[in-house]
Write a protein that binds this DNA or RNA. Sequence first.
DNA 1: GAACGTCAGGAAAGGGCTTTCTTCGACTAC
DNA 2: GTAGTCGAAGAAAGCCCTTTCCTGACGTTC
Lengths: 339, 339
Amino acid sequence: MATLADVAKRAGVSAATASRVINGSAKPVTDELRDRVLRAVDELHYVPNAHAQGLARADRIAVGVIVHDVSDPYFAEITRGLQRVATEHGRLCIICNSYRDPDRELAYVDLLRAQQVAAIVLTGSGYHDLRFTRLLNAKLKAYERSGGRVAVIGRHKHAGDAVMPDNEQGGYLAAAELYRLGHQRVGVIAGPRILTTTTDRLTGIRRAAKEFGGSVPPRRVVYADFDRDSAAVATAELLDANPGLTAIAALNDAMAIGALATLRERSLTVPGDVSVIGFDDMPIARDVLPPLTTIRLGMPEMGMRAMTLALTPPASEPRIEHLPAELIRRASTAAPPAS
Amino acid sequence: MATLADVAKRAGVSAATASRVINGSAKPVTDELRDRVLRAVDELHYVPNAHAQGLARADRIAVGVIVHDVSDPYFAEITRGLQRVATEHGRLCIICNSYRDPDRELAYVDLLRAQQVAAIVLTGSGYHDLRFTRLLNAKLKAYERSGGRVAVIGRHKHAGDAVMPDNEQGGYLAAAELYRLGHQRVGVIAGPRILTTTTDRLTGIRRAAKEFGGSVPPRRVVYADFDRDSAAVATAELLDANPGLTAIAALNDAMAIGALATLRERSLTVPGDVSVIGFDDMPIARDVLPPLTTIRLGMPEMGMRAMTLALTPPASEPRIEHLPAELIRRASTAAPPAS
DNA sequence: GAACGTCAGGAAAGGGCTTTCTTCGACTAC
DNA sequence: GTAGTCGAAGAAAGCCCTTTCCTGACGTTC
């Protein structure tokens, strides 16, 4: 690989001059030398060594993002928002997939610190795991002390600024809609127990149940993995354990789609026999049949706000921004069958 | 930020010893010193500076991947395959989204070279753009000359090893299925004209048409952007221009879903009134109604093979591996209406 | 007890770049 | 003609780490 020294030698200038030309430094360089340097760069196909640049430069240019999985639509939308703002600020985004593995998450925080990122944005659910929470917070605090910025999305026990989607209210809105339509026996397909997102949404559902004089007994809650296939299986269990079920609330859209698949398999119509409500309003929600009634949280907005917080000088107090949940009515919900 | 020197000082050892402990070097260090170093690391929350490490270490550990958009299911699947193999080889993947912008693609090749990656994998369609192709090839050649490895997925004018999905054959299979079912007037929703993927798939469709004594006149081909919404609009145009249409072949599944949306809007049933066939067999294809008949190319497999090529010493000749296309029959296709 | 081998640990040389500080030459001003 | 300016280019320090090479202490061998 050609180095800056090679370029300088070929152009007959010093490394300093070559560097200045290549980086468009403020320092003036005569056109004559500039041309010679640029020609040398071209001829040698020179590209500066990013490691060396990173070492030599004082400013931290990159920002780090930890998500569950960028290819998951939920996180893809958040990431879109994050990237937009980062790019506007001239920052590069380093994106890490934790696949909801706490240990991997910890490792990625270190990796991002190692990369000298200016800020770390942590997205996705927190965990009910004290050891992990403590470890993570210690790491983040140390990072902040050394001048790094931290912003989190949807985590209670944050260390840093936060954007909080109102998961509890979303759960409430979903369940309230079902009760309002007249459903009494509502089943829930929940996500992994360990995630705070799951418990928050469940809490909202329970609040609605209580308010409408109902309840959500344990046999009407099944736990899946926030994905289609596990939810399809869970739906079967749910139906078997609760023959009289007239509505299903899935804690995300992917699981709602899994539920639809199982219902179709059993020749139960939606919403004729069973109503289904999802959560997140991912793009595909309108294209399944019937289009999903669901809860929108405004993911790109969340991403944009979080990155804005992360790239803004810290306030004296951690800033917390709340984002409301919104019910999106489509065709997968209706009144329960007459019987 | 704490540096290695800080750790060494705190532990009362030399930087060399600290480095050896931290990296688990082969060189032996007494337990006494090892403990002191590890304690210092802990107390200082030390993380090695990745830039400095990258500079000091000789071996290139990362590999680069350029895709259209990781959150696009098509590329998400390829990426899964790429990552799997990279991880098996102990490599880190740097993933770049080109968003099908040739200039961004060129810029990313430079960026990856700057990061000193051991290999670059280029995925996704090539472009009918001579200037770009030449520029890209020059860059890749220069990179290979300096010891870098290159592998491409689905690009004819490659510089390096290649994995080639059989897009032409896929187009043929899709159209042949429709003709076999008895359709005569088949409309096509194509992707961007500039992409070789579009033209390859179209070529296959035309071959099938010819073989079955039909043809695909220009008015039966509309061009969209490989996404749902543009395809929904394009479908409307297609239907308006061709009242007697009985089947639609979309060049990817997202566009097929867009077509389904427009057909539903116009109260045309699928496959009763119009058959629809997609391409790529993305996961959601089975969850729309009706489940999509489509063409599978085996994306994760493609990714795995490409990364394997990239991480394997080069052969004397560029290696090219072909992957067959496969028809997946579901419920969105049937014989044309009797009338 | 001299000569040697072994082994843990340290000194120091890079690795490629940016940037401050210096130098040098040309020019202006008196 | 000399002192003083200014501007462009170069020398060199520094960013932080890894690794080679070297030192010095200790143990072994005859």
